[in-house]
C-alpha cells in the first residue's frame, strides 16, 4: 500500500473539491478485522473506514434497491474468497454489506467453519435471508473473487455476469509470457491499485461528510463483535442472536 502517494491523492481531491476538513490515511493495526487503513482527522480522532461502501458496484447495487428497481428484496447471496486475507476480515466486510445493501440490521447468524472457510446464514430484522460463503484458503497468487447477488420479487441484481463464475475484467492482455488483466474504474485516481482507490475514496467521503466518522466507528465496533460471535456460533450449537427477530 503506497500510503504517501495515497495521502497526496487525498489532498489533491480536497483541493479540487474545496473540502475544508483534513486528515491523513494511516495503516491499520495488525490483526484489524476492518479496512487496511484508517483516517486520522486533524483533531486526532481515528476513523475506521468502510471502503466498500463507496465502491461503485455497491453504490449501484444499493441504488437499484433504493430506487425500487428491485422490489421486495427477499434474499442476499454473497461470497468472498481470498488468498491473503484472514477469514475474520472477509466476514467483517460481508456482514457490513448484508446490512448496507439489505437495509436492515442482522438479528441472527449461524456459521459452520472448517479450516480457513466459513459458511454463514444470517437473518435481517425485516426477515430477509443472507448467505455468506467465505474462504481464506485460495492458493497464493490466485486473484481475489467475490459475488453479491440481491434476489427480489421483482428482479435480481448481481455484480457478476449471468452464466459466469469468476469476475470479468475490462482488459485482457495476452502476451508471449503471460496473461494480464486490468480493471480501471476511477479516472481521478488512475494508477492506484483498486484497494488503494477504495481507501482514498472512503477517506475523502468522511472528509466531505464528517458526520460519517462517528457512524462508521460505531459500525466498526459492532461488526468486530458480530464477526467474533458469528464465528463462535457453531461451537455454541446455536445461532448468534443480536436482537429480537421480527
Amino acid at each position: 500500500m503506497k500510503i504517501k502517494e495515497m495521502n497526496e491523492a487525498l489532498q489533491w481531491l480536497r483541493s479540487k473539491y474545496a473540502v475544508k476538513a483534513d486528515g491523513t490515511l494511516e495503516a491499520a493495526a495488525d490483526g484489524s478485522f476492518g479496512a487496511d487503513a484508517e483516517l486520522k482527522l486533524e483533531n486526532g480522532t481515528g476513523v475506521k473506514l468502510l471502503p466498500w461502501r463507496p465502491e461503485r458496484r455497491f453504490v449501484e447495487l444499493k441504488k437499484l434497491v433504493d430506487s425500487k428497481t428491485l422490489e421486495n428484496v427477499s434474499t442476499l447471496r454473497f461470497a468472498a474468497m481470498s488468498h491473503d486475507k484472514p477469514l475474520e476480515k472477509l466476514l467483517y466486510r460481508e456482514l457490513d454489506l448484508c446490512e448496507f445493501l439489505g437495509e436492515s440490521p442482522i438479528v441472527s447468524a449461524f456459521a459452520v467453519s472448517n479450516g480457513s472457510t466459513a459458511n454463514v446464514l444470517a437473518k435481517l430484522k425485516d426477515d430477509k435471508s443472507c448467505s455468506i460463503e467465505c474462504s481464506a484458503a485460495l492458493p497464493a497468487g490466485t486473484m481475489e473473487m467475490d459475488r453479491h447477488e440481491i434476489i427480489a420479487r421483482r428482479g435480481i441484481a448481481c455484480d457478476r455476469t449471468v452464466d459466469t463464475q469468476v469476475p470479468q475484467s475490462s482488459i485482457y492482455q495476452f502476451t508471449e509470457n503471460e496473461e494480464k488483466r486490468y480493471t480501471d474504474t476511477d479516472t481521478e485516481l488512475f494508477g492506484f491499485e483498486n484497494e488503494e482507490v477504495l481507501l482514498i475514496r472512503a477517506a475523502f467521503e468522511v472528509l466531505q461528510h464528517p458526520e460519517l466518522a462517528a457512524l462508521w466507528n460505531q459500525t466498526d465496533a459492532r461488526l468486530v463483535k458480530m464477526t467474533k460471535a458469528v464465528l463462535e456460533s457453531e461451537k455454541n450449537g446455536k445461532p448468534a442472536v443480536f436482537a429480537e427477530e421480527k
Partner: peptide
C-alpha cells in the same frame, strides 16, 4: 426461498441454496 448450511461427519462444512429464485 430457503438456505441451508451444516456439516458432514468428516468435518466438511457446506452451504446450499435450493431455492426457486428465478
Amino acid at each position: 426461498m430457503l438456505l441451508v448450511n451444516g456439516k458432514m461427519k468428516d468435518g466438511t462444512s457446506f452451504l446450499f441454496d435450493p431455492s426457486w429464485s428465478r
